[in-house]
Design a protein around this nucleic acid. Structure first.
Length: 651
RNA sequence: GCUGCUGUAGCUCAGUCGGUAGAGCACUUCAUUGGUAAUGAAGAGGUUCGGCAGUUCAAGUCUGCUCAGCAGCUCCA
């Protein structure tokens, strides 16, 4: 049997040789730092026996790929520690994840003190340095084995595996866990770890099943990396829009107003309004959209036609009592049916299509009480929503246009690099959940795939994520905690026109159902603002800054002068202000957050001193030193150039 | 909706066995003017401790309910 190593060298080994044997054969040092193997690109346990010719790569603990193995092993060590300290705790599952690992236990919630105790116990276990041993059992035997040990959750897991499955276990010391691996050879390989938090989590992610106690932790090959990671998490938290946005007075919440109902404060409003004016002008002037303004609520009748009354009533704010009142209303959770009736206002010719309706649309969704979060999950939000009514033959081209518009918006905001594109497909295994023929679904998905490819967009495909009426493209980003949020969605809809009896008249004079695209350009404003806050950490591009220029007179005698500079800047459409405190503090800039203002005009300071204060400040100097009007023109021009929505990249 | 944590001055927080509100920053006034993350001194600031009940001679502190915020789960047209 021939094994090809990473450096291209070939090794003749016997069948049944393990990855670890190969590593040992190369050198003892390599065996010591080996964490896992990679056979033909697939991560495997060191204990894996080689059965065929293959490419083999020994993954050492220095390799980022080893993290997964280290963390998985750390989760086992944690489980052992928990069972040592809390013998009645039953183990459920404990995988490695992007940022570390977790393990779920059937046990009362763990406190921070518990976590500290568990950490200490882990230290003891790791110090013992027990080897991890792998052994296998037939399925039935494995079930009995776990039943004896009273591990009900493990029994259930094994029962869900195929009849003929060979069940593998790992054992370190007295601790035995059902596990597919891969794992380190010895617990000593866990050099640095930290238990970060605990919380509840449903067994198998099902809200109808018991709630278990989950402990999150992270582990690394060395202490420096762990420290670095914890520092990064700390820094990320500082960019959290929910903290920063409140601190910067962009928004707030009030207990008596209610959950998921943020108040956008004056500074936040400036930003949202900048975004809105930009998007509306862009869509209407350059992308052929026409604007509508439709009611924020409607009678239940509308939602009965759209299907929301049957399928989404829980998510809507209903006004009135169906039993008592003749008419019952509901606040709208989306704009679709309203814009359909805009279209249905009169008969349309095929020559008019495509019609691209857009609306700055406020929506209301009655989210569950535990779901609300800052500006990203709210009960009332405003979205750049729109529906394109198109002929089937225009569909691909228009869908492409929607994506191109989104791409343009993201690039302008400097967010393009942060997103992932998803083709949300139907689930062929589950056709009942969707309307329409399999053939049509496949065809449509192929069309979208082609559009994405033509636009040179990288994307992943998610099966079972489509809307019931058609596939869609979802554009996601990650928040500072690494959680995915959908920012933008563009949906292909060849079905709803039927439901709402929409048609156009084709060249032969026949009535034909149009296709529709549900789409947004930058998603909902609140969520997009949150995203921008986190992306820029509060240091916004100039055009979005609530305050673009701050005028700082160094002493009282420059106050009037400062006021006149401020007034002229404002007249030129620049958002500026005078810092009244400046006369007292001289030219010492005390406010560490001052750098959130892109431009500072220092009045009265000597030029070399001004430079020390801020790299971005502009020096005006004593009255008469420089012509005021010329100065105002210069700075206005400079800011204007950055206000035409070009991205200002600051280091 | 579920699990856990939190809610005291504008902000960040302390408040020990229930005994009747505290610090730093910010703010105001005065002094100072070369102090580039914080000049010195003085002062003001809580309808009293998210809200409503209850226990008690006495509740920020204990109990119940409730509202809101946070983390996670679940959900997310």
């Amino acid at each position: 049997m021939l094994v090809t190593l990473k450096d291209g060298s070939k090794l003749e080994v016997d069948k049944g040789t393990t990855v670890y044997d190969v590593a040992s054969g190369i050198s003892e040092g390599l065996a010591r730092v080996a964490a896992a193997g990679e056979i033909d690109g697939e991560l495997v346990d060191l204990r894996t026996e080689l059965t065929d010719d293959c490419d083999l790569n020994i993954i050492t603990t220095k390799d980022p790929k080893a993290l997964e193995v280290i963390r998985h092993t750390a989760s086992h060590v944690m489980a052992e520690a928990v069972q040592n300290l809390f013998p009645d705790a039953k183990v459920a599952i404990g995988p490695s994840i992007d940022t570390g690992f977790y393990y779920d236990f059937d046990h009362a919630p763990f406190s921070r003190e518990d976590l500290d105790a568990i950490e200490a116990e882990m230290k003891r276990i790791i110090k013992k340095g027990n080897p991890l041993e792998r052994f296998i059992m037939p399925r039935d035997e494995a079930i009995e084995y776990m039943k004896e040990r009273n591990e009900d959750y493990k029994v259930e897991l094994i029962q869900d595996l195929p009849e003929d499955a060979v069940i593998s276990f790992y054992k370190q010391g007295d601790f035995i866990d059902l596990c597919a691996g891969p794992h380190l050879m010895n617990t000593k390989g866990i050099k640095a770890y930290k238990l970060t938090s605990s919380s509840g989590a449903y067994w198998r992610g099902d809200e109808n099943r018991p709630m278990l106690s989950r402990i999150y932790g992270t582990a690394y090959d060395n202490k420096e990396d762990l420290k670095e990671h914890l520092k990064r998490m700390e820094e990320a938290r500082e960019k959290d829009h929910n903290r920063l946005g409140r601190e910067m007075e962009l928004f707030t919440t009030v207990d008596v107003i209610g959950q998921g109902l943020p108040l956008i404060l004056p500074k936040g409003t400036i930003m949202l309004q900048e975004l809105q004016r930009w998007i509306e002008d862009l869509e209407d002037n350059e992308w052929g959209y026409i604007r509508t303004r439709t009611p924020l609520f409607a009678k239940s009748d509308l939602y009965k036609i759209s299907g929301h009354w049957d399928h989404y009533k829980e998510g809507m704010f209903v006004m009135g009592d169906e039993e008592k009142d003749r008419e019952v209303f509901a606040l709208r959770p989306m704009t679709c049916p309203f814009q359909y009736y805009v279209y249905k206002n009169r008969q349309h010719s095929y020559r008019e299509l495509p019609l691209r309706y857009s609306e700055t649309s406020t929506l209301f969704r009655n989210e569950d009480s535990g779901e609300m979060h800052g500006l990203t999950r709210v009960r009332q939000f405003t979205i750049t929503e729109g529906h394109l009514i198109v002929r089937p033959d225009q569909m691909v081209e228009e869908f492409k246009g929607c994506l191109a518009l989104v791409k343009h918006c993201l690039e302008t905001l400097g967010l393009e690099s942060d997103v992932t594109y998803h083709l949300s497909r139907w689930d062929p295994e589950n056709p009942d959940k969707y309307e329409g023929e399999a053939e049509v679904w496949e065809q449509t998905e192929a069309s979208i795939r082609q559009v994405l490819t033509e636009l040179d967009i990288d994307f992943v495909e998610d099966v079972g994520e489509a809307a019931f009426y058609g596939p869609k493209v979802d554009i996601n980003t990650r928040n500072v905690y690494g959680k995915d949020d959908t920012m933008i969605t563009i949906q292909w809809d060849a079905l709803m026109a039927e439901r709402f009896d929409m048609y156009y008249v084709d060249e032969k004079g026949d009535k034909v159902r149009p296709y529709m695209i549900h789409r947004t350009s930058i998603g909902c404003y609140e969520r997009t603002l949150a995203w921008i806050i986190e992306k820029y950490g509060g240091l916004f591009p100039t055009w979005l800054c609530p305050e673009q220029v701050r005028v700082l007179p160094i002493s009282e005698k420059f106050m009037d002068y400062a006021e006149s500079v401020n007034a002229k800047l404002k007249k030129n459409g620049i958002r500026s202000s005078v810092d009244m405190r400046a006369e007292k503090i001289g030219y010492k800039i005390r406010d560490s957050r001052m750098n959130r203002v892109p431009y500072m005009v220092i009045i009265g300071a000597k030029e070399e001193e001004e430079k020390k204060i801020s790299v971005r400040s502009r020096y005006l100097g004593d009255e008469g030193q420089k012509d005021l009007d010329t100065f105002i023109d210069e700075i206005t021009k400079e800011i204007r150039e950055k206000t035409i929505r070009e991205i200002e990249v600051e280091e």
